[in-house]
Structure formats: C-alpha cells, structure tokens
Write a protein that binds this DNA or RNA. Structure first.
Lengths: 236, 236
DNA sequence: GCAAAAGTGTTGTAATTACACCCATGT
DNA sequence: ACATGGGTGTAATTACAACACTTTTGC
C-alpha cells in the first residue's frame, strides 16, 4: 500500500470535456460546504500527488475523489510549470485546507494536465470532501483558481488537434445512439468549420465505425432522424 | 535574479533529434572525467529545476550547460512520473554528484520531457561540468540512465505525429541547402513509408516553402543533384 | 396545411497513385 | 563504356466541394 505522504511540488489537474449539443463544456468542481475562505472557488478536479503514486494513478484518484467518476481514460497533455503559477493568496489557503499541509511548505507547484472526452450525461456518483461537480460551457467559465483557465484552453487546443488525426475520439462525447445531425454539429463545433449536410451523409456512409440502426427518433415534431451507433474499429 | 535552491522533485530532460542521412539520432551526454561511479553513464541532457525557474527556462539552461547549445526551440512533449523511475542505485549517485544534494533527499522525481529537431552538424560549443555530447542513432542507443530510453521513444513518437500535421518541422533536420533525395529519405525515415520518386518531385514543386536553387552538387560521381532551400512560410 | 428538421444525386475540380526509361557525371 | 544515382510524363483513380429540392412528422 502507499504511504500517504504528499509531494508538495507536483500536482495533477483533470480537464474533462463534454458536449451539450451546442458547445463544449468542462467539468468544474467547487467546495460546496462553506468552510472558510476557500469555499466557493471554482477549480478543475486536481490535487497534489502522493510520494509513491504514479502520475496516471494520481489523476484517476483525484477524479474519483472529487466527482465519483471511475475508469475514465484520461491522457496527459501538458505540464504547467510557470514559476508564478500560485500568485493568488486564496489559492494557498485552499491548498492548506485540502491537503492539510502548512501553507509555508508550498513554494512552487508544477502541475501535469490530463484530459478526456466524456458523455455529458454520466452521473457523478459519490462526492467526497464536500465537492460538487458541474458542467460549464468553456466560453462562459467563471473565475477559476490558479492558472486553470489556461489549462482548460490548452486542453481544448490539444483535443482539436488530436481529433484531426483520430476522428473516433469524438464519439466519446456522444450518447450510444446518436443522429447524423448530432455528430455533424459536434464536428463543426470542435473543428470550428461548417460542414455541408449532403456531403456529410455521404461521408458517414463510408466510415466503417459509424453503423446505421433501424431505430429512429420518437416524439419529435418533425421528420424522425435515423440513429447511428459507434463501432470501435479493431486496433491494429 | 534566481536563488539557486534546487527543487528536488521536478526535473527536465531534453531529447534533441538529428538526422544523419540514414536514421534519426539522439543527442546523448556523458560525464567524461572519470570522477567516480557516475562517470561513463549515458544520459539525456537534463537536470532538476531550480525553485523559481520556469520549466521552459530550465530546459534551455540545462541544454546550454551540457552541450553549449543555445536558442534551440524545444517544445514540451510529455511528463514522466512513474513512482519507480529511479530504480537503479547508480542513478542516485549521479544526482548526488551533479546537484550536490544528499542522496537521501531524493525520494522521487517527476521529469518533464522537451524535444526539438536539430541539424546534426551544429557544433557543441563549450561544454561545462566535464560533459561530452554525441549523436547516437536511436536504434543503437547504449544503456541509458533512469527511464531515458522510454523518454527517447516517446519523443520520437510525438515527432512522427507532429510532422504529419506540420511537414515544415522536418526542415530543421536538414542543412541549409539540400537535395530532393535528402528530403525524401528523411520523410521516408520519419514516416516509415516509401515515397515514389517521380511523384515526390511533383509534390515539392507545389510546396511554396521548398524553393529550388540554381546551384548543384559538385564532385559526385554521378549526375549532380539540384539544391533546394527551405523558405519559412509567413505565419498567419 | 404549415412549420421544422431530415434526407437525397450530380457534376466539376483537385489530389493521389501507379508505372519505366533516359540523363549527367566521375572513373 | 560503365556504374551510379538524378531526373522526367501520362493516365486512372479517388477524394473533396458546390449546390436545391422533396420527405416526414406533430401541431
């Protein structure tokens, strides 16, 4: 088992991105119980690492602690190591409370950013430590602690690039059954372009990992759209 | 000015990649003066960071210290944070000597990997601390300290991907004047594919950033090849 | 029947592939 | 003259871009 000694110099932060049908959202947490100055601060799920904990493990742990989410396939995308990352005094207060370390021991923290794409309807099951997690559109984020706003925009930048090389990434953002329009709007949003509707239907017909279903939408006041599902291709 | 206090938990390591006309090489250093157990160990240029030093600054500093290279445009590519990175006892001895910190203070180090592409003919000007730097083919690396072998292969993986999105990266690997064949062999090596010679000539004719010169090879015992140069495109 | 979104074909252009022989130079 | 690598054209295929009307459904 691991000792619970905190490494006061290295942290991980998780940028979970979801799609609400219109825009990308990020999962933001805040300490809900008003227990001092640090309550109410919006942050990314993140924490210092323990001494004998792998970075990847730390990212999984903190995500579970703060949101209840498990088995999220996060990938590292960047380290943030500006010497002046902890400029706001309130941030130091938060570190003290959360980690039970003396503020004076916190000199400087390098954080490793992790990110993943997630269906926005995934339930945050059990929340420990009085945290509540919520999805917030990335263009309307409130003030965030530390340099978390920069971290979010770097994550989005990374995702945009990776999605170009591997379009199948985006399917993590959609429900199991989705319509052609949902997929198209998602791609338009992530890539920041407009896609021709007719050409798009042709294109998905050639994608082996997008399979049409017989099922259709129900109860909509217009023509019902066909559902599709994503079939993960065999990895070579 | 910066204080010279070492942060004993965070380091940077630099993977400089060059091309010798046949294969990718990495720049490896080793302590040349035999001053104990740690001499003779091959490593990447890297070091712990100072307390009030940005990561990017640290990468530049250590590269200069160990190879004399300055103004190398490195980019961060990954953090390495396995809890067991420092498994070899000899590695601890090295840290002690280089940083003048007590070995017992080194519990666990997270390192941030930086990488860059470099012309292999760049001279390593002044070498401090008794280090000698040399290019070594990435497929014939000797045993390296820590997990530096993993770090090299992750860097190569990253470069392969980035070169797909931005082919102009590769020109950093070539001399100012290069032949079509040199460029083709480089691309074949990095991408791991074969490229049709005739189609390749057509393709470079359409690349605005590859400009043909009048100058030709000299003193070769076959038809002289035309030289080209790389003209960096205006960044938008 | 009308509002609202889904779905459907054709054509022109650009990019990519496949393929085999002659050219210039040094020895 | 011969060995060595440099350089060239054409045709077929495929991928991509532009563009407007008809269909289904709920109200």
């Amino acid at each position: 088992m691991m000792t619970m000694t905190v490494n006061p110099y290295v942290s991980v932060d998780c940028v979970l991105l979801g799609f609400d049908g219109t825009q990308l959202n990020a999962l933001i947490v805040r300490q809900s119980e008003t227990m001092g100055d640090s309550a109410g601060i919006y942050k990314l799920p993140g924490s210092l690492i323990y001494m004998d904990e792998d970075l990847d493990e730390a990212a999984q742990r903190v995500l579970k602690q703060m949101t209840g989410l498990v088995q999220v396939n996060m990938m590292q995308f960047k380290a943030f190591g500006g010497a002046d990352r902890l400029k706001n005094p309130a941030d130091g207060v938060w570190l003290e409370r959360f980690h039970h370390v003396d503020n004076s021991h916190i000199e400087r923290i390098v954080t490793i950013g992790y990110t993943s794409l997630l269906r926005i309807d995934r339930r945050m099951e059990k929340l420990q430590g009085g945290y509540e997690a919520q999805w917030m559109p990335i263009n309307e984020l409130p003030e965030l602690a530390f340099d978390h706003r920069d971290i979010v925009s770097e994550a989005v930048k990374t995702i945009r690039q990776r999605a170009l090389l591997d379009p199948t990434l985006l399917f993590n953002l959609l429900p199991r059954k989705f319509t052609a329009t949902q997929l198209r709007v998602l791609m338009e949003t992530v890539q920041g372009v407009r896609i021709d509707v007719k050409n798009f239907h042709k294109k998905i017909a050639t994608m082996p990992y997008v399979v049409p279903l017989e099922e259709k939408e129900d109860g909509v006041n217009h023509r019902a759209a066909r559902y599709y599902k994503f079939k993960r291709p065999r990895k070579k």
